[in-house]
Structures are given as C-alpha cells and as structure tokens.
Design a protein around this nucleic acid. Structure first.
Lengths: 218, 218
DNA sequence: CGGCATCCACAGTGATACTG
DNA sequence: CAGTATCACTGTGGATGCCG
C-alpha cells in the first residue's frame, strides 16, 4: 500500500493494515491461534488466492504475522499472529462493535462462518463472562459447527469434533445465538423466536444470565 | 467500496470506512468539530481533491458525516460528524495507539499538522488529564501553531489566533511535545533534548506532572 | 477563493487457470 | 496443499479546468 506520508499514529497504522483484506486476515488469526493457508481461505470467503498470498507476505514483513514451516512429514505452513499482531485486538474489537448495527436480522447473501461468533463474545467477555461458570456450548449457526467454551474470562471456539459432547447445544440464526450469548436477548425470548436449545438448559441459563432485558433483539 | 459480503461486524465496518482516506477524514472531523472543504484538504496532505469530494459523499450517504450549507452571505459548506460518526472514536484511538510506535523520532518526509497532537492526548486524557487543572498551552511544532486547552477532562485544540495568550508555550519536535503532554517524558528531560518552554513553567508542570518516568522517549 | 468535475496514467484487485 | 501466473477491470493520484 502506498504510504499516506503523514506523521500521525492513525495514518501509520493504516499504512500497514489499511489494505483491503488485511484486518480480516488478522481477525481470522485472532480467532484461530494457528491456521493453515486453506483454513484462512475458508474463513475469508470472497478473497482471491493471490491476494491472500500477497497480504500474508505483507503482514509478515510488517511483523504482524509469522509463518512457521512445519517439519517435512507434515510439510504444511502455519500462520500465527505475533505479539505485535495481537496488539490489534482492541482496534478489531472497536471496529467490530461499531459495525455490529450494520448487520441485518437476516444475512441475505452474506457469507457466515460460525467461528466469527467469538468476536462479539470477546467484546462483551470483560463485562459479563469473567466470573461466569465454565461451560461448553455447541453451536449450529452456519455451515461449520463450533463449540464455544466460556470460562476463566476467556472465550474459545473450536471446530466441533465427533467426540465432543458440549453441555448444551444451540441451533438458530447467528444474530439470535449472539444475542443470547452476550446476554442481550433473554433465553426464553430467543426460544420463542426460533432458537433451539438442547441439553443442559439450566447450565446455559447460569452462564449467560437467565433474565436480561427482555424483548428487543437490537 | 466493494462489500466483503460477510456477516461480521468487522467486515461491515470495513465496508463503510475501509476505503482509503475515509478514516483519516473522520480523524480530521473528530479534531475539528466543523470543517470547510479546504480545511479538510489542508489537514489531509496528499489527498486528491476529487477523492476528498468522493469520500465526503460516501461518508454522508453512510450517515457518518453531515453537510451543512451555510446561508447565502457566507455560502460555504460545513462538514461535521454525526453521532454515528463520533462512535468511531474508540476505533480511531485504538488504531492510532497501535500505530504510534511506527512514528520515528524525526518525521523524515512525512507531513505534520499540529492539530494532530490532540489525538494522542485524547487517548491518554482518561488516565491523567481528567482532574488536571485547566491550562492553555501554545504549541509550535508544525507549520500551523495551535493552542491546546486541557481541562475538565477534555482536550481541545484550536488555531492560534493573534489575540491568544496561552499560559505557556512549547516549541520543539512533535514527538517531544507529545511525550511531555502525555507525561511520558519528564519536562526537565525534554528541555534538555531541545524543547523550548516559555511562560508559566510551573503551571505546565502542575498540568502534566513534574516528574514521570525519566529518560526514555519511547 | 472554495468546491468541486474531468481526464488520464498507473497501481491495486479479483476471477480463473495452472503448478510443484 | 499452498501457492504462482495471467489478464480484464476498477480505484487512485496528479493535473488541470470550471464556475459562482
């Protein structure tokens, strides 16, 4: 990217991560710890493969991403955020929060990946999830199924492997799942609006709070 | 800008303010309250005039900026942030803070505008300036001279008009001025490194803290 | 002078195809 | 799996012109 040539922190930041797709790649790596090239492509629907390769090189050169060449037997490269890259967390959260109202009730032609759910959860984690009891929540909201683990003030998502047995399972549209998990939609309300809950409902209730502001999904 | 087509807050935010120059325009408006077209161009060195016009239209359409046509005698349009636009403050702060380490000790060929100083000041305002006594500080650090007013937990900068008589005046490189104002460089230390202080030195000392971590400018 | 619109050369983007 | 190569297309930046 062409530099703005301005002696200003914001301009300098945009010189480095202002390119199209760059921050979305950071998002993927924030949510995944380590990812293969194809994992990234899967999590970035719409990106052209040459752009992904370009951006990874640029981000690596900028010290935001590091590439780890796995040993010959596996022979697959892994990408991770560096400490510097993880420093973008606040910015990603702030932008994500600002953009949240732009997400409609249904997602029309938009692509969706279940692991993206972790982003809004992280934003609200500080407020509410810090002292919540640990729980594993299976989520069917997009094409991939994920397990969201809450506990110790952390949010972790991971692919739902066959031998996973989460405490409770949620099935429904992303907006409703997010609403419940961040406590903005009351559980009973969400169930009335199409959220399917299976398993230990009481554990879920304890984790996300039984009664929050009822009604509104906004 | 072409939409990412992803049902994700971050992606939606970038759909709207991910275009080149857009966030820098928001920065200008954050720092200025209301600005004329030429004020914006002055504060955005390097922007092409057609791009500025384009972006202002886009930002207006997105509900981030509003245009106010001044009445016939003045006949000049004023641009302001809407509430929605002001909601970007956290994101701009986070990105600016992340980018700060990318600013070298001198600014080589970079352009600089004194009113940009207010950005890092705002970031640190919550911590330190909230209960600091009110003070007006004249700053000579770039081509424009500005008066920085601290007080009531707010930071305000404005052009230095002829009849302004700030309590104290700072002259020196931006990095040093910022360092002193956010309390990361001790005042006496900064003076030894080329910062010129004129006027009520004690008032300045009370406002920014006399002794912070000495030495390092980083 | 303030606020653009037009034009053009060129750098960045995105879809597809291909490769070790 | 992890990219590179190609190429049509679009967005950017610089210059300049126009108009109240």
């Amino acid at each position: 990217m062409r530099s703005y040539g301005q002696y200003c922190g914001l301009a300098k930041a945009l010189d480095v991560i202002g390119d199209r797709w760059s921050l979305l790649i950071v998002r993927e790596l924030m949510l995944r710890d380590a990812a293969r090239y194809t994992d990234l492509r899967e999590g970035l629907p719409g990106i052209a493969t040459n752009l992904l390769a370009d951006r990874l090189r640029e981000l690596e050169a900028a010290g935001i991403v590091e590439r780890e060449e796995a040993p010959p037997p596996v022979a697959t490269a892994l990408f991770r955020l560096t400490d510097r890259g993880r420093g973008l967390r606040d910015a990603v959260h702030a932008l994500g929060q600002w953009g949240a109202p732009l997400m409609g009730d249904d997602f029309g032609d938009d692509e969706f990946r279940s692991h993206w759910l972790a982003l809004p959860l992280e934003v609200y984690a500080g407020d509410r999830l810090a002292e919540a009891p640990a729980i594993a929540i299976g989520v069917h909201a997009g094409r991939e199924n994920v397990v969201v683990e809450l506990g110790e003030g952390r949010v972790r998502t991971r692919a739902w492997s066959d031998d996973d047995a989460p405490d409770v399972t949620l099935t429904g549209p992303p907006k409703l799942v997010i609403g419940v998990l961040i406590g903005r939609v009351a559980l009973d309300d969400a169930r009335g609006r199409g959220l399917k809950v299976e398993g230990d409902l009481e554990a879920l209730r304890r984790a996300v709070g039984g009664r929050s502001v009822a009604a509104t999904g906004r």
